[in-house]
Design a protein around this nucleic acid. Structure first.
Length: 639
DNA sequence: CAAACAACCTTTTTT
DNA sequence: AGGTTGTTTG
């Protein structure tokens, strides 16, 4: 048995209270930097030291990485391996449970998981077919928007009409069409054995509600449930937790309503407010001592969130009394902004602050394009979190489609994608062939599908041979990916000028498969948790690089120095939020999350001029959230 | 029915 | 600046 950990020494009064609670529901309202992660880590350690079997603990987090980190910290603490603890996202937990219990719902357990782009592709495909001979063109929502609407309806447990009224009143006239698309989309998923993110949660919930066996088995297995980032759960997820804990009520939910920033995904901070209602007898514990930031930074962040209308009032305090005032700059334009950041980074380096101790944060992925160029010019290495996704670039999707077809021959859209790569194949041909191919197990029977064109037949044969041979060939998944890569290479070269770079991406993809033994596993995990980008897989700790990140992707992280760019109207708050109170509130919380990432130094930059393609140079005011803040909070600097 | 070209428009945030 | 959508041509 491991040595005893002195919990009293490592935790403050409140943290200790949460960690050592015996049984029953607990809600930990943990302000930014108040030791939220620490509390969870110590809670796991405490439970295990009390003799709780690690395999009866379930740790739900926002990303798999977060779960792994917490578990590894906990296991270091008590010097006990903890790989028996179930840890992961709601989606991966749902996936796990559904694989096992799908038959109770009359669903095949061999379903594939659709990622965002699969969903959009499918909806687009359906929309094209819905009105024969014509697209509804003008004013009709785009596939991406439709996907959003459907997802929101699923995640909030409401109807399409409700969602449209609240979020997209200008599409109200299309209710019948959208309903129809929804029906056809569901049909498409059923016949092709597919599930999207919402289906995972929805079916998990249904499973827990309808199958007494599954519910009690799971609830008896996971006797202690910990949920991180509870403020970013939706109603569906709350219901899942409620059911999972039905046998014991041992749930510890941890979160901060002031940091709820995922409402576009159906998350609602009111969820965390209602937790005590969902679990009567909940002990609410507030963590308000901040261990991260200096007093001046905290003063600013407190002022930013003070005007928010969220529920649990709190005011963080710290014992780090001294420190620099947050600095703010108003440079002329984007160019100057990038130069300030660069200069700042170079100065900090001279002061001995490592590159990886600094981060630049922004509202949206494209806000950093100019900065990226400037950093490159100055030879400053950086990695970027958030924004464009490796897995969603065309060439990666092409190769993945081959793998998916090998895995699930019914995947019609992947067939279409593969076929459309061949020269001389467009929508019509692909559609026809994909239909037959997806119905047939044995590809060797499909050779004669194409007879008319000799040239095309050669290509088609080659494709079928490659798929078939790769499918049955022995060897690792990486080997198979390489096989597909070399088949795909000529097309890649043909289609893209930057094919060498894209080829490197494909090699990277092969590397990603290394930890996996089963192709199904690999594909599903990639859909559930895609890697950040091609660069980050090489990143791995020791590389000293500046971090550029969207605010969303910076959640839960911290740096010595944080620099926020584009703190202006039109960027934060984002123009889309304009006129919607709830959304504007969320933008404020977003800025709160961003500013609370800083330990010692916070820099805010807000260019005066932004370049708009339509109107040319436009003057833009400082973000209203900073305008609101008391004067002495910030030191204004000349550029 | 597919390829080549042109206009366009988009652009939050992510499991 | 990129992909996407629509239009024309072969």
């Amino acid at each position: 048995m491991s040595q005893k950990v002195d919990f009293r020494k490592h935790l403050n009064q409140k943290q200790l209270e949460a960690v050592s609670r015996s049984d029953g529901p607990v809600l930990v309202v943990a302000g930014a930097g108040s030791g939220k992660t620490r509390t969870i880590v110590y809670r796991v350690a405490w439970l295990v030291q009390q003799g709780v079997d690690p395999s009866s603990i379930l740790l739900m987090t926002f990303t798999r990485k977060a779960a792994q980190e917490m578990l590894s910290r906990a296991s270091q603490l008590i010097e006990t391996e903890l790989f028996d603890v179930a840890g992961g996202t709601f989606h991966s937990t749902a996936n796990l449970a559904l694989r096992r219990y799908a038959h109770y719902l009359g669903i095949q357990s061999s379903y594939s998981i659709m990622d965002q782009s699969d969903i959009v592709d499918a909806i687009e495909f359906i929309r094209k077919n819905i009105v024969p001979g014509g697209n509804q063109g003008k004013g009709f929502p785009r596939p991406r928007t439709i996907a959003e609407i459907l997802s929101r309806a699923a995640g909030t447990d409401t109807g399409i009409e409700q969602v449209l009224k609240e979020r997209h009143p200008h599409f109200l006239e299309f209710i019948p069409q959208i309903e129809q698309i929804r029906e056809m989309f569901m049909d498409h998923k059923r016949t092709n054995h597919l599930m999207d993110y919402d289906d995972l949660l929805l079916n998990f919930k249904i499973l827990l509600e309808t199958s007494e066996i599954a519910r009690s088995e799971l609830s008896l297995r996971w006797k202690y449930i910990l949920v991180d980032e509870y403020q970013d759960t939706n109603t569906l997820q709350a219901k899942i937790i409620r059911r999972l804990a039905c046998e014991h009520d041992n749930v510890m939910a941890v979160g901060d309503d002031s940091q709820s920033i995922y409402s576009f995904r159906g998350a609602d901070f009111r969820n965390i407010m209602e937790f005590p209602t969902l679990f009567p007898g909940t002990q609410v514990i507030r963590l308000e001592q901040n261990y991260r930031s200096t007093a001046p930074i905290l003063h600013l962040t407190n002022s930013i969130i003070a005007r928010a209308t969220t529920g649990y009032p709190k005011r963080l305090f710290t014992e780090k009394k001294t420190g620099q005032l947050p600095m703010a700059f108003r440079p002329w334009g984007e160019r100057e902004q990038s130069q300030i950041v660069t200069r700042l980074v170079q100065d900090s380096l001279r002061q001995g602050i490592g590159l990886s101790e600094m981060a630049v944060l922004f509202r949206a992925g494209f806000h950093s394009f100019d900065l990226e160029a400037e950093l490159t010019r100055n030879g400053i290495p950086f990695t970027k979190y958030g924004g464009f996704k490796f897995m969603e670039s065309q060439h990666i999707k092409d190769v993945l489609a081959h793998l998916r077809v090998m895995n699930n021959h019914r995947d019609r859209l992947s067939w279409m994608r593969i076929l459309a790569i061949l020269p001389g194949v467009g929508l019509k041909t692909a559609s026809k062939l994909a239909h037959t191919l997806s119905e047939t197990h044995d590809l060797t029977q499909c050779k004669d599908l194409v007879t008319h064109s000799k040239k095309f037949k050669t290509h088609f044969d080659h494709l079928l041979n490659t798929i078939w041979n790769t499918k049955i060939m022995a060897g690792t998944i990486a080997k198979k990916v390489e096989e597909i890569n070399s088949y795909y290479y000529p097309f890649l070269q043909e289609r893209y000028d930057n094919y060498p770079k894209r080829m490197r991406d494909l090699d990277q993809l092969a590397n990603l498969t290394v930890p996996y033994k089963s192709l199904t596993r690999f594909l599903n995990e990639m859909a559930l948790e895609p890697p950040d980008d091609s660069a980050s897989s090489e990143r791995r700790s020791q590389d000293d690089k500046l971090v550029l990140s969207t605010i969303h992707s910076a959640k839960g992280l911290e740096w010595h120095t944080v620099c926020l760019i584009w703190v202006t109207e039109g960027r934060i708050p984002s123009p889309q939020a304009e006129g919607m109170d709830d959304d504007l509130e969320e933008e404020r919380r977003l800025l709160y999350v961003a500013t609370t990432r800083a330990r010692e130094r916070l820099i805010i930059i807000a260019p005066r001029i932004s370049f708009d393609r339509r109107y040319g140079s436009v003057e833009i005011p400082l973000s209203r959230f900073i305008e609101d803040v008391p004067h002495g909070c910030i030191r204004w600097c000349n550029t």
